[in-house]
Structure formats: structure tokens, C-alpha cells
Amino acid sequence: MNSKLLKYTKQGIYCPQADIYIDPWGNVDKAVITHGHSDHARRGAKKYLTHRITVPIIKHRLGSDINTKPVEYGEVISVNGVRISLVPAGHIPGSAQVRLEHKGEVAVVSGDYKIEDDGFSAAFEPVKCNTFVTESTFGLPIYKWKPQKEIAADINSWWKANKKKGFASVLCGYSLGKAQRIIKMLDTRIGSIYTHGAVHSVNELLVKEGMILPETRLVTKEIAKSDFVGAMIIAPPSAMGSTWLNKFEPYSLGYASGWMNVRGARRWQAIDIGFALSDHADWPGLNDAIKNTGAESVYVTHGFTSVFVRWLKEQGIDAHELHTQFKGEQVGTDDGEAGN
């Protein structure tokens, strides 16, 4: 990396002046974590600095023994002259862009982000900077999201239609972020909402942090099969194709992921319906976000990296590829498994 503030090392993106890594892999002293998904939050750091809401999430996932320091959005931490702060990334609750400032130079590592306000995670805020590190999970012009309101209507009418047929609706999505976003989008007048254990435990963590979610019930063996008729069941993608689904028969299986924007990806999964609902920026979103930073240099991490860099260069932006171990949204696995 050719940046005054950031270097790229074996352990990931590093700020030498503050001696701090952002979303590193391997053993390091200090890490700033953008959000709780497992390809960004890994074991191995002696100290984790992250948003307050992310703290219980990574403790839950990485172990309660880790050393954490919670911060709020906008709160400034000074380390050896570097002013470090977190700015909402709009990706999932607690997700943040890491802003680093030193001697008038500003660098932003955005982690994963989406532009549309989901009414749940703190909404994305553009930050002016000299160096911007961006993802490109959906960095192709074939990815353009419908407004959340329209997708919510699609999901609810699918649910309603299933209920009318006497079917349960099983909708899969990442258990951290996507699942709760879906739950907030549901029209609770249609029926009851059940959750898979992986989703349930994240819900509990977020509710403790003061987030408001509609009432859901954990799926347990004791619940009668007849209770699932017409109900909505929210599960992680790893539930697709598993025998866990048998108890909901007859059911219709849905999958909420940005990849579902393409028919081939929908058909590849043995699902009945795909909803192109993503917590990542779409093509116009990525382009707008980058433009709004006014950055002189842009580093593109995971996704359609080489394609997106070439595109940015053609737009007159000084863009580079960064081969990180971030993965973005994966197909068919849960966010907890993605980083393994």
C-alpha cells in the first residue's frame, strides 16, 4: 500500500503510527474490528477495539476471555497522535468504518458496508478522506438492489401465499444482521415468527444492547408440528438442505442474499424463492460511496476486485487491489462459518 497511514502486512491492514491492525488475521497486539462477521473478527489479537454493540457479539463468537474496549460512533481515541474513530457503515448493527487521522492525512477502512438505511443498523455515513479501503462483494453492474420496502412487500406476500396454502415459510439468511433485518421487515399480523438457535442467540445479544425486535420463538423439539403451519421460520443458510427442515413440512424455502439477484444462483440452490436482499453496497452504491469520499487512492479488498479496480481506473481513480482474507457474502453458509 502506498499510503502515509496504512501498510499492508501478512496479518492484514496495519497503521504503523498507532501500531494497530484493522480486522487482522493471525496474532497481533491491537486490533480494531469493523463488525462481528467472522471473516472480519478473528481470534488472535491481544486487544480488540470495536463498537459497543460488536463487543458482546465477538465475545459470544470468539470467546468471553478476549480483551475488548467498546467505543461509540464518533468517539475519538488517540493513539500515538493518530485520532481513531468509528463511523456507521450501515452493514449490520455495530458495523463501522474505521477513520484514522494523523497530521491532516485521513484514511478510512470501511469493512463491509451498504448505502441504503435499513432502519435498524446505524445508517452509512460518507467520510471525506485521502485513502479509502473498500469492499467489492457485488462490484458488477448486474447487482442493483430493489428498495428494502419493495423486498419487504415481496417477502410478506410470499409468506401470506404460503400461509394460505397451509405451508410454513422458511427464510434463510446470515444469522448476524440479515436475520434480524428480515425479522424487522416482517408483517407480524400474518403469523408467528420462529427462529433457529443460531439466530435466536444473536437476537438475545442484540436485544440486551437495546435493539427492538418483534416477538420470536425459538424452534424446539417440544413445539407441535401443527404450530409451524403458516408460520415464518428464520434460519441460517446452513439449514438449507439439512434434516432440521423436515419438521416444517410442508414448507416453502427462501433465501435472502445479494447473490439471489441472478437466476443461476437461485437455481443452483435447492430453494423455492430467492430474495436479493443484501447488506452490502450494490454497484451504484459502491460507485457513489467512493465518489463521495473524494479519496485520492482507493484500495479494493474482497469481491470482484480486479474487475472493479479496472473500472475505477477507467473512471480516473487511482485504484489498487488488496488481497485480503475478507470474504464478503458467501453462498450457502452462515456468517459464523464464512471465516473458518
Partner: peptide
Amino acid sequence: WLADESYHSV
């Protein structure tokens, strides 16, 4: 070229 890339992906 970008349209081609898109086609390869879809």
C-alpha cells in the same frame, strides 16, 4: 469488457 465480465458471471 465490463459487459463481458457481467455475462461471464451471469
